[in-house]
Amino acid sequence: MNSIENRLKDILIIDLFIELEKNKILAAHSFRNDLGIDSIGFVELKSQVEKQFSIVIHDDDFTPDNFSTISSLTELINRYGKANGVRG
């Protein structure tokens, strides 16, 4: 499994208390519709991603599109990683 996706699943379970088992969380699951993440959850998700991937997500990137699924968030982290030279 992609290591960024794997770490995102850990964040969802450990920091956001998502009740699904790790192997049942899919990269295509919608954070809002399938995992029930609400406004506070998104703020926590952004904060944990910034902390654990050592990046600072610009306000313009904190959008429903980028924070739609594990796949879309992985793409965003990869973009920041390339810009910062950080590996996933």
Partner: peptide, 10 residues
């Protein structure tokens, strides 16, 4: 109807 997450520029 929009969000979340809330984004001021959006």
């Amino acid at each position: 109807i929009d969000g979340p997450p809330f984004n001021a520029n959006r």
